[in-house]
Simulated assay, not measured.
Amino acid sequence: MNWLTKLTPPGVKSIFSKKDTPDDLWIKCPKSGEMVFSADLPGLLHVTPAGHHMRIGPKTRLGQVFDDDQYEKVAVPDVARDPLKFKDDQKYTDRLKKARAKTGDDDAMTIGVGKIHGLQTVVLVQNFAFMGGSLGMAAGEGFIRAADYAVEHKLPLVVFTAAGGARMQEGALSLMQMPRTTIAVQRLRENNLPYIVVLCDPTTGGVTASYAMLGDIHLAEPGALICFAGPRVIEDTIREQLPEGFQRAEYLEEKGMIDKVVHRHDLRKTLAQILGVLMKSEPEFETEDA
Protein backbone atom coordinates (compact mmCIF):
# COMPACT_ATOMS: atom_id res chain seq x y z
CA MET A 1 0.00 0.00 0.00
CA ASN A 2 1.52 3.36 -1.06
CA TRP A 3 0.99 6.84 0.43
CA LEU A 4 -1.59 7.78 -2.24
CA THR A 5 -3.74 4.77 -1.36
CA LYS A 6 -3.76 5.80 2.29
CA LEU A 7 -4.96 9.33 1.46
CA THR A 8 -7.67 8.31 -1.04
CA PRO A 9 -11.19 8.11 0.48
CA PRO A 10 -12.90 4.69 0.11
CA GLY A 11 -15.70 6.12 -2.04
CA VAL A 12 -13.26 7.50 -4.59
CA LYS A 13 -11.35 4.21 -4.75
CA SER A 14 -14.55 2.32 -5.60
CA ILE A 15 -15.19 4.63 -8.55
CA PHE A 16 -11.82 3.89 -10.08
CA SER A 17 -11.60 0.24 -9.11
CA LYS A 18 -10.52 -2.16 -11.81
CA LYS A 19 -13.39 -4.15 -13.29
CA ASP A 20 -13.05 -7.73 -14.41
CA THR A 21 -12.74 -8.08 -18.18
CA PRO A 22 -13.87 -11.35 -19.81
CA ASP A 23 -11.02 -13.37 -21.28
CA ASP A 24 -12.94 -13.97 -24.52
CA LEU A 25 -13.97 -10.36 -25.19
CA TRP A 26 -11.51 -10.16 -28.09
CA ILE A 27 -10.19 -12.91 -30.36
CA LYS A 28 -6.96 -12.75 -32.32
CA CYS A 29 -7.34 -13.69 -35.98
CA PRO A 30 -4.80 -16.47 -36.76
CA LYS A 31 -4.56 -15.25 -40.36
CA SER A 32 -3.93 -11.51 -39.93
CA GLY A 33 -3.14 -11.15 -36.23
CA GLU A 34 -5.78 -8.44 -35.81
CA MET A 35 -8.08 -8.40 -32.79
CA VAL A 36 -11.74 -9.13 -33.49
CA PHE A 37 -14.56 -8.21 -31.11
CA SER A 38 -16.21 -11.51 -30.07
CA ALA A 39 -19.72 -10.04 -30.13
CA ASP A 40 -19.32 -9.34 -33.87
CA LEU A 41 -18.50 -12.95 -34.79
CA PRO A 42 -22.05 -14.42 -34.93
CA GLY A 43 -23.08 -11.77 -37.45
CA LEU A 44 -19.97 -12.59 -39.47
CA LEU A 45 -20.79 -16.33 -39.32
CA HIS A 46 -17.58 -16.69 -37.30
CA VAL A 47 -15.41 -15.60 -40.21
CA THR A 48 -12.87 -12.90 -39.36
CA PRO A 49 -12.54 -9.79 -41.57
CA ALA A 50 -9.33 -11.30 -42.97
CA GLY A 51 -11.29 -14.36 -44.13
CA HIS A 52 -10.21 -16.90 -41.53
CA HIS A 53 -13.00 -19.46 -41.00
CA MET A 54 -13.12 -20.23 -37.30
CA ARG A 55 -14.13 -23.67 -36.05
CA ILE A 56 -17.74 -23.77 -34.91
CA GLY A 57 -19.84 -26.31 -33.01
CA PRO A 58 -22.92 -28.25 -34.13
CA LYS A 59 -25.50 -25.84 -32.71
CA THR A 60 -23.96 -22.87 -34.50
CA ARG A 61 -23.45 -24.85 -37.71
CA LEU A 62 -27.00 -26.17 -37.85
CA GLY A 63 -28.36 -22.72 -37.06
CA GLN A 64 -26.41 -21.25 -39.98
CA VAL A 65 -27.42 -23.93 -42.47
CA PHE A 66 -31.14 -24.43 -41.83
CA ASP A 67 -33.85 -21.91 -42.68
CA ASP A 68 -34.59 -19.60 -39.73
CA ASP A 69 -32.54 -21.84 -37.40
CA GLN A 70 -35.43 -24.33 -37.42
CA TYR A 71 -34.61 -28.02 -37.32
CA GLU A 72 -35.36 -31.27 -35.51
CA LYS A 73 -32.59 -33.19 -33.81
CA VAL A 74 -32.31 -36.94 -34.36
CA ALA A 75 -30.97 -38.98 -31.47
CA VAL A 76 -27.73 -40.91 -31.94
CA PRO A 77 -27.97 -44.53 -30.70
CA ASP A 78 -26.21 -45.40 -27.45
CA VAL A 79 -23.03 -47.47 -27.59
CA ALA A 80 -20.88 -49.29 -25.06
CA ARG A 81 -18.82 -46.87 -22.99
CA ASP A 82 -15.12 -47.63 -22.65
CA PRO A 83 -15.34 -51.19 -24.08
CA LEU A 84 -11.58 -51.70 -23.76
CA LYS A 85 -11.27 -50.22 -20.24
CA PHE A 86 -8.64 -47.93 -21.72
CA LYS A 87 -6.34 -45.80 -19.61
CA ASP A 88 -3.26 -43.74 -20.42
CA ASP A 89 -2.43 -40.79 -18.16
CA GLN A 90 -6.15 -40.73 -17.32
CA LYS A 91 -9.17 -42.97 -17.80
CA TYR A 92 -11.08 -42.87 -21.08
CA THR A 93 -14.29 -42.43 -19.10
CA ASP A 94 -12.82 -39.32 -17.50
CA ARG A 95 -11.89 -37.91 -20.91
CA LEU A 96 -15.45 -38.48 -22.09
CA LYS A 97 -16.87 -36.69 -19.06
CA LYS A 98 -14.63 -33.70 -19.67
CA ALA A 99 -15.54 -33.56 -23.37
CA ARG A 100 -19.26 -33.73 -22.56
CA ALA A 101 -18.97 -31.00 -19.95
CA LYS A 102 -17.00 -28.81 -22.38
CA THR A 103 -19.30 -29.20 -25.39
CA GLY A 104 -22.67 -30.10 -23.90
CA ASP A 105 -22.89 -32.96 -26.42
CA ASP A 106 -22.88 -36.69 -25.78
CA ASP A 107 -20.29 -37.34 -28.50
CA ALA A 108 -18.81 -35.91 -31.68
CA MET A 109 -21.82 -36.34 -34.01
CA THR A 110 -25.01 -34.26 -34.09
CA ILE A 111 -27.87 -34.89 -36.53
CA GLY A 112 -30.40 -32.28 -37.58
CA VAL A 113 -33.28 -32.43 -40.06
CA GLY A 114 -34.73 -29.27 -41.57
CA LYS A 115 -34.98 -27.15 -44.69
CA ILE A 116 -32.21 -25.48 -46.66
CA HIS A 117 -33.92 -22.83 -48.75
CA GLY A 118 -37.08 -24.92 -48.59
CA LEU A 119 -35.45 -28.28 -49.36
CA GLN A 120 -35.82 -30.88 -46.60
CA THR A 121 -32.37 -32.26 -45.76
CA VAL A 122 -30.56 -34.41 -43.20
CA VAL A 123 -27.43 -32.70 -41.90
CA LEU A 124 -24.73 -34.39 -39.83
CA VAL A 125 -22.14 -32.22 -38.06
CA GLN A 126 -18.88 -33.55 -36.65
CA ASN A 127 -17.65 -31.55 -33.66
CA PHE A 128 -13.88 -31.12 -33.51
CA ALA A 129 -14.17 -29.72 -29.99
CA PHE A 130 -15.27 -33.16 -28.76
CA MET A 131 -11.99 -35.08 -28.45
CA GLY A 132 -10.80 -33.76 -31.81
CA GLY A 133 -13.96 -35.04 -33.53
CA SER A 134 -12.40 -38.49 -33.36
CA LEU A 135 -14.19 -41.38 -35.03
CA GLY A 136 -15.26 -43.88 -32.40
CA MET A 137 -18.24 -46.19 -32.06
CA ALA A 138 -20.63 -43.39 -31.11
CA ALA A 139 -19.54 -41.27 -34.09
CA GLY A 140 -19.86 -44.27 -36.39
CA GLU A 141 -23.37 -44.98 -35.11
CA GLY A 142 -24.20 -41.31 -35.58
CA PHE A 143 -23.19 -41.41 -39.23
CA ILE A 144 -25.09 -44.63 -39.84
CA ARG A 145 -28.20 -43.26 -38.09
CA ALA A 146 -28.09 -40.14 -40.28
CA ALA A 147 -27.76 -42.25 -43.44
CA ASP A 148 -30.57 -44.61 -42.36
CA TYR A 149 -32.84 -41.65 -41.59
CA ALA A 150 -32.11 -40.19 -45.03
CA VAL A 151 -32.93 -43.51 -46.72
CA GLU A 152 -36.07 -44.02 -44.64
CA HIS A 153 -37.44 -40.55 -45.47
CA LYS A 154 -35.99 -40.29 -48.99
CA LEU A 155 -33.89 -37.24 -48.14
CA PRO A 156 -30.40 -36.08 -49.14
CA LEU A 157 -27.57 -36.22 -46.61
CA VAL A 158 -25.10 -33.38 -46.03
CA VAL A 159 -22.14 -34.09 -43.74
CA PHE A 160 -19.80 -31.47 -42.25
CA THR A 161 -16.56 -33.25 -41.39
CA ALA A 162 -13.95 -32.10 -38.86
CA ALA A 163 -11.75 -34.71 -37.21
CA GLY A 164 -8.27 -35.68 -36.16
CA GLY A 165 -8.90 -39.30 -37.21
CA ALA A 166 -9.84 -42.48 -35.37
CA ARG A 167 -10.32 -42.57 -31.59
CA MET A 168 -7.29 -44.38 -30.21
CA GLN A 169 -9.02 -45.21 -26.91
CA GLU A 170 -11.31 -47.62 -28.77
CA GLY A 171 -8.60 -49.37 -30.78
CA ALA A 172 -9.79 -51.70 -33.55
CA LEU A 173 -13.42 -50.93 -32.65
CA SER A 174 -12.77 -47.40 -33.89
CA LEU A 175 -11.17 -48.60 -37.12
CA MET A 176 -14.21 -50.79 -37.79
CA GLN A 177 -16.28 -47.62 -38.23
CA MET A 178 -14.51 -46.91 -41.51
CA PRO A 179 -16.01 -49.87 -43.45
CA ARG A 180 -19.33 -49.50 -41.58
CA THR A 181 -19.75 -45.88 -42.66
CA THR A 182 -18.66 -46.80 -46.19
CA ILE A 183 -21.49 -49.34 -46.37
CA ALA A 184 -23.91 -46.65 -45.16
CA VAL A 185 -22.77 -44.38 -48.03
CA GLN A 186 -23.38 -47.26 -50.44
CA ARG A 187 -26.97 -47.57 -49.18
CA LEU A 188 -27.53 -43.91 -50.04
CA ARG A 189 -26.25 -44.57 -53.56
CA GLU A 190 -28.45 -47.62 -53.98
CA ASN A 191 -31.44 -45.44 -53.11
CA ASN A 192 -30.35 -42.65 -55.48
CA LEU A 193 -30.03 -40.13 -52.66
CA PRO A 194 -27.44 -37.34 -52.79
CA TYR A 195 -24.53 -37.45 -50.37
CA ILE A 196 -22.71 -34.13 -50.08
CA VAL A 197 -19.60 -33.63 -47.96
CA VAL A 198 -18.44 -30.25 -46.66
CA LEU A 199 -14.83 -30.58 -45.54
CA CYS A 200 -14.03 -28.31 -42.59
CA ASP A 201 -10.81 -27.59 -40.76
CA PRO A 202 -9.31 -30.05 -40.05
CA THR A 203 -10.43 -33.25 -41.77
CA THR A 204 -7.71 -35.87 -41.36
CA GLY A 205 -6.83 -39.51 -40.70
CA GLY A 206 -9.38 -42.31 -40.92
CA VAL A 207 -12.23 -39.89 -41.55
CA THR A 208 -10.52 -38.68 -44.74
CA ALA A 209 -9.82 -42.31 -45.61
CA SER A 210 -13.52 -43.20 -45.43
CA TYR A 211 -16.77 -41.22 -45.62
CA ALA A 212 -15.18 -37.76 -45.98
CA MET A 213 -13.96 -38.55 -49.51
CA LEU A 214 -16.90 -40.67 -50.70
CA GLY A 215 -19.36 -37.88 -51.45
CA ASP A 216 -21.14 -37.24 -54.72
CA ILE A 217 -20.02 -33.63 -54.32
CA HIS A 218 -17.12 -32.39 -52.18
CA LEU A 219 -17.15 -28.81 -50.95
CA ALA A 220 -14.63 -27.30 -48.53
CA GLU A 221 -14.33 -24.19 -46.42
CA PRO A 222 -11.42 -21.86 -47.26
CA GLY A 223 -8.12 -22.78 -45.67
CA ALA A 224 -9.31 -26.13 -44.32
CA LEU A 225 -6.59 -28.73 -43.71
CA ILE A 226 -7.62 -31.92 -45.55
CA CYS A 227 -5.30 -34.91 -45.45
CA PHE A 228 -4.58 -38.38 -44.10
CA ALA A 229 -1.20 -37.66 -42.50
CA GLY A 230 -0.35 -34.06 -41.70
CA PRO A 231 2.30 -32.01 -43.51
CA ARG A 232 4.75 -32.14 -40.58
CA VAL A 233 4.64 -35.96 -40.54
CA ILE A 234 5.20 -36.09 -44.30
CA GLU A 235 8.11 -33.64 -44.19
CA ASP A 236 9.76 -35.63 -41.38
CA THR A 237 9.32 -38.81 -43.42
CA ILE A 238 10.50 -37.69 -46.88
CA ARG A 239 12.97 -35.06 -45.58
CA GLU A 240 11.75 -32.49 -48.10
CA GLN A 241 10.02 -29.13 -47.98
CA LEU A 242 6.36 -29.34 -49.08
CA PRO A 243 4.77 -26.83 -51.49
CA GLU A 244 3.13 -23.72 -50.05
CA GLY A 245 -0.44 -24.41 -48.96
CA PHE A 246 0.03 -28.17 -49.33
CA GLN A 247 -3.07 -30.13 -48.17
CA ARG A 248 -5.16 -26.97 -47.78
CA ALA A 249 -8.57 -26.75 -49.45
CA GLU A 250 -7.43 -24.42 -52.23
CA TYR A 251 -4.49 -26.67 -53.13
CA LEU A 252 -6.75 -29.74 -53.29
CA GLU A 253 -9.27 -27.89 -55.47
CA GLU A 254 -6.48 -26.96 -57.86
CA LYS A 255 -5.39 -30.62 -58.04
CA GLY A 256 -8.95 -31.86 -58.62
CA MET A 257 -9.44 -33.67 -55.30
CA ILE A 258 -12.42 -31.54 -54.25
CA ASP A 259 -15.08 -29.84 -56.35
CA LYS A 260 -15.24 -26.35 -54.90
CA VAL A 261 -13.99 -24.16 -52.06
CA VAL A 262 -16.97 -22.19 -50.75
CA HIS A 263 -16.95 -19.22 -48.39
CA ARG A 264 -19.20 -19.75 -45.38
CA HIS A 265 -21.37 -16.79 -46.38
CA ASP A 266 -22.19 -18.55 -49.67
CA LEU A 267 -22.46 -22.09 -48.34
CA ARG A 268 -26.22 -22.25 -47.69
CA LYS A 269 -27.06 -20.98 -51.15
CA THR A 270 -24.52 -23.31 -52.79
CA LEU A 271 -25.91 -26.35 -50.95
CA ALA A 272 -29.47 -25.41 -51.96
CA GLN A 273 -28.47 -25.07 -55.62
CA ILE A 274 -26.75 -28.47 -55.62
CA LEU A 275 -29.61 -30.16 -53.76
CA GLY A 276 -32.12 -28.59 -56.13
CA VAL A 277 -30.37 -30.13 -59.14
CA LEU A 278 -29.78 -33.56 -57.56
CA MET A 279 -33.27 -33.84 -56.03
CA LYS A 280 -34.98 -32.25 -59.06
CA SER A 281 -36.61 -29.67 -56.82
CA GLU A 282 -36.73 -25.89 -56.87
CA PRO A 283 -35.05 -24.11 -53.92
CA GLU A 284 -36.88 -21.18 -52.36
CA PHE A 285 -34.65 -18.15 -52.84
CA GLU A 286 -35.43 -14.57 -51.95
CA THR A 287 -35.30 -12.24 -54.94
CA GLU A 288 -31.86 -10.89 -53.99
CA ASP A 289 -30.49 -14.45 -53.50
CA ALA A 290 -31.69 -15.88 -56.79
Rank of each mutant, 00 (worst) to 15 (best):
G63N: 06
E170K: 08
D94P: 07
L157N: 01
H52E: 08
R61T: 15
Y149P: 00
F160R: 06
V159E: 03
A166E: 06
K91F: 03
K115L: 12
A138M: 15
D94Y: 01
K91D: 13
A146P: 15
V79Q: 05
K102T: 04
D107F: 10
G133T: 05
V65M: 15
A129W: 06
I116Y: 13
D107P: 09
S134C: 04
A75G: 11
K59I: 11
L84S: 02
F86N: 09
I111Y: 14
D67M: 08
G136I: 05
F86R: 06
K98D: 00
Q126C: 09
H117K: 06
V113P: 02
Q169R: 15
Y92P: 00
D68N: 13
L41Y: 06
K59F: 01
H153F: 12
K73W: 13
V158P: 00
V47D: 05
T103V: 11
D89Q: 03
D106M: 09
L135M: 09
V159S: 04
L96S: 03
A129F: 10
A129P: 15
G112M: 13
K91S: 14
D40G: 00
P42A: 05
V151C: 02
K115P: 13
A138P: 10
A108I: 08
K73Q: 13
I56S: 11
E152L: 11
V122M: 06
V125F: 03
M168A: 13
E141L: 15
V158Q: 01
L157V: 00
Y149S: 03
M54W: 00
L84G: 02
N127D: 01
L96V: 07
V122F: 01
Q169V: 13
K98R: 14
V79S: 05
A101E: 09
M168P: 01
K97F: 05
R145A: 12
T161Q: 11
V123E: 12
V47A: 06
T103W: 12
P156D: 15
M131D: 12
E141T: 15
H117Y: 10
F66W: 11
G57V: 12
A147Y: 09
A166G: 04
A162Q: 10
V113M: 09
K102G: 07
G136N: 01
V159L: 06
D68M: 12
D106Q: 14
A139V: 05
V76H: 08
R95K: 00
M54H: 03
Y92R: 01
P58I: 02
D107K: 04
M109P: 12
A146H: 14
Y71R: 01
M54T: 10
L84Y: 02
A162C: 11
G57N: 15
R167E: 15
